[in-house]
Design a protein around this nucleic acid. Structure first.
Length: 714
DNA sequence: AGCACGCCGACT
DNA sequence: GTCGGCGTGCTC
């Protein structure tokens, strides 16, 4: 081992710093590396350190005094490059959260910690930082005028009860360790959940001059309205920032630093916000807690909702030991009209506090469910006769209609009538979707795009026909089916909202009332406050009814309930309607939907899951493998299964490897294997030792493997 | 994960 | 003759 750079004789590198760096768990070395330093640094301090050929950001986890700069192992410690002392160390609670997340999701702590910091911070070198700090002194941009006295709208009895119950829990437990439960605010659409949590936030901000609040939402971009409400209501009380992937890297760094310094007291964020550094965090609100977007799908897979619950617990534990008299706990509030089955079960068993609001504010009524039986229509019918009639009379009444279909593009597959050719993607086991607007075949999985062939590439036949339909085709066919070409039909989906500001502009069009029918993917069902929609129609609900994913009914039910909630948000409208087209109108799910009966649905789901020992009555993990060939992917999983036998506790079962339902994406073959256990600690221990064994060697031919703990898509 | 080092095909 | 493909190997 050769020492790089002589040690300065006058400044002895008398300290050894253990530093977290971004290294994945599969490297033998681990993600805590030791460096030499002139001085000790507090845990949580940010440092720049040499790592191989590059220089990276690291987080100090410990400093020890050391006589020698050479460890027992004979490794020569490199000195740190710089300490970013303009930035306060990350709090102990923050570090504990990342430690927990790394352990729970079986990732390295360094990888997770560094991924949780804004990308721009990781690139910041010492000079850039000092420059940044130099120009920093700028007063907070709090509005100069006193907070506008809000017209005090009285809370409903239910809202009031929910709010006092939420804050009341702590007073009841007078013992040294207050048992603060996470709260599940379960309120039907229109019951005024948002108002309840806004009040809760105001109250928390008022109790302590420094208190900070974190609001998590599924997708900020999709709900500009919520952002406006938060800005108008809370922005007047305290400075707030947003944190999501839609803002520029520079803004993101700025927001992060403002939250980290305590200056921003409100952070409105998407799932990445759960790791925001907030030294005085006292409340976390998770809005639409059932939403699948809280589950990160890329990189370190974790559930921001679950971590929010854990974070509140950790923050509280770190607050309370010192000066328990003044210390404030960190609360967490999960809100939904259709809670995840897991959260509902937690509330039923008493692990969460249930705050229930059943009544709709004002006189707004829930829409009446109409099921259109597609078996009575010719095969391939897009719009059943009764739905068309209902749409006509809805428009005749001067109301708007919302039609949604969870598939964008014109048609999901093109096929040749003569030889049976279909427009498969050459790189994926999927068809490319026909987009009529630009006459392209686009693969929604790998992005491969090609012009539509003039004739069948196999047999030369000119008649290649679009099969099935997407939102583009619905848009085109609606006017024809309704026999009125003067209708103003607007389509909103990922294709029409690609450009910045497009969604807002399109929503504004809907709000002015010039649009008769709004066609869209499930994107339009999320949280928008449409005032004049009298009819909502789901064109095709059947795919989810018989999915092999046990969570599909739960997602469908939530989606349809949420869609129904888009109708009748204005009491002016008389009776509103929800239409669902199905070939299985007798399916029990629709029975609950017709009664707007989440509780009935959840009770039935829970009992089914209990019988089948599915989550939340058991815990799952998926081991996924990717390779150039399906055989190689499965061979790896088979060997992993073999390796598991020696480590397997009785409570854990490993199922045989299977190809993933989307077997090939971008020329990569994928396979997976399910692991199930009914004792979480035993499952966790098994996974940790199993992965350690698997990481020793990755066979040739395998591209990568990853473990997904608590997967939500099977 | 990055990033370097290292050994074999189509271009100035 | 060089630019560049990605295979293996290391990072305190």
């Amino acid at each position: 081992m050769i020492t790089k750079g002589a040690l300065p004789p006058d400044k002895p590198l008398a300290w050894q710093l253990d530093v977290l760096v971004a290294m994945p768990a599969h490297v033998q070395l681990g993600s805590v590396l030791s460096y030499a330093s002139e001085q000790a640094l507090a845990a949580g301090s940010l440092v720049r350190v040499p790592l191989g050929a590059r220089e990276v950001l690291g987080v100090v986890c410990e400093s020890h005094e050391s006589r020698a700069d050479v460890q027992d192992s004979g490794v020569t410690l490199k000195p740190i490059v710089a300490a970013l002392d303009g930035i306060a160390p990350l709090s102990a609670a923050w570090r504990a959260l990342l430690e927990f997340a790394a352990r729970y999701y079986q990732r390295s702590a360094g990888e997770l910690a560094l991924a949780a910091l804004p990308p721009q911070l990781r690139q910041l070198d010492a000079q850039a930082l000092s420059k940044r700090m130099a120009k920093k002194p700028k007063a907070t941009q709090l509005p100069a005028q006193a907070p506008v006295a809000r017209q005090e709208i009285a809370l409903s009895e239910e809202q009031d009860a929910a709010l006092s119950a939420f804050f009341g829990v702590q007073e009841q437990t007078s013992t040294a360790k207050p048992a603060l439960l996470p709260a599940l605010l379960f309120g039907s659409t229109g019951s005024g959940k948002t108002e309840v949590y806004l009040r809760a936030i105001e109250r928390v901000l008022a109790t302590e001059p420094q208190a900070q609040v974190l609001i998590l939402v599924p997708e900020i971009n999709l709900t500009p309205q919520l952002q406006a409400i938060v800005e108008a209501r809370l922005g007047a009380i305290a400075s707030y920032v947003t944190l999501h992937s839609g803002i520029t890297p520079a803004q993101r760094l700025k927001s992060w630093l403002t939250a980290h310094s305590g200056q921003a007291r409100i952070v409105l964020a998407t799932r990445m916000g759960v790791f925001a550094s907030m030294p005085h965090l006292r409340l976390i609100v998770v809005d639409e807690e059932h939403d699948a977007s809280y589950r990160s799908q890329d990189g370190a897979r974790h559930s921001a909702r679950d971590l929010a619950v854990m974070r509140a617990k950790i923050e509280t534990e770190h607050q309370l030991p010192e000066g328990a008299a003044t210390a404030q706990p960190c609360r967490v509030l999960l809100a939904s009209a259709t809670p995840s089955i897991e959260s509902w079960q937690a509330a039923q068993s008493g692990r969460y506090q249930l705050l229930r609001m059943d009544k709709r504010i004002g006189d707004a009524k829930l829409p009446k469910l109409h099921l259109a039986d597609l078996r009575r229509e010719p095969r391939g019918t897009a719009f059943s006769k009764p739905l068309l009639e209902a749409l006509k009379s809805c428009i005749a009444r001067g109301e708007q209609a919302l039609v949604f279909l969870n598939r964008r593009g014109y048609s999901p597959v093109l096929a040749c009538d003569a030889c049976g050719w279909k427009c498969a993607c050459p790189h994926c086991s999927a068809y490319r979707v026909f987009h009529k607007t630009d006459r392209m075949l686009r693969c929604h999985h790998c992005g491969h795009t090609e012009r539509v062939p003039r004739a069948c590439p196999e047999c030369g036949n000119i008649d290649i026909a679009p099969l099935g339909r997407g939102t583009q085709k619905v848009e085109e066919q609606l006017a024809v089916a309704l026999g009125d070409s003067t209708l103003n039909i607007l389509r909103i989906d990922a294709d029409t909202t690609r450009h910045k500001g497009a969604l807002e502009q399109q929503l504004a069009q809907v709000h002015t009332g010039q649009v008769h029918i709004l066609v869209g993917t499930q994107m339009v069902t999320k949280g928008h406050d449409f005032r004049r929609i009298g009819l909502v129609a789901a064109l095709d609900a059947d795919a989810a009814l018989f999915s092999n994913d046990f969570r599909a009914p739960e997602r469908l039910f939530a989606l349809l309930m949420q869609a129904a909630g888009r109708a009748g948000r204005d009491a002016q409208l008389g009776s509103t309607q929800m239409w669902v087209q199905s070939r299985y109108p007798d399916h029990p799910l629709f029975k609950y939907l017709a009664r707007h009966d989440y509780v009935g649905f959840a009770t039935q789901e829970l009992s089914a899951r209990s019988t089948a020992m599915l989550p939340p009555f058991s815990y799952q993990a998926l081991l996924r493998a990717e390779a150039r060939s399906q055989e190689a992917a499965q061979a790896f999983l088979a060997s992993a299964q073999e390796a598991a036998q020696a480590l397997l506790p009785e409570s854990v079962t490993v199922y045989p490897p299977l190809p993933m339902s989307l077997q090939r994406v971008a020329d990569v073959e994928r396979a997976q294997m399910l692991i199930e256990g009914h004792l979480r600690p035993e499952l966790q221990r098994f996974l940790a030792s199993w992965l350690q064994a698997l990481r020793q060697s990755k066979p040739k031919g395998l591209i990568r493997f990853a473990l997904d703990v608590d997967p939500i898509l099977i």
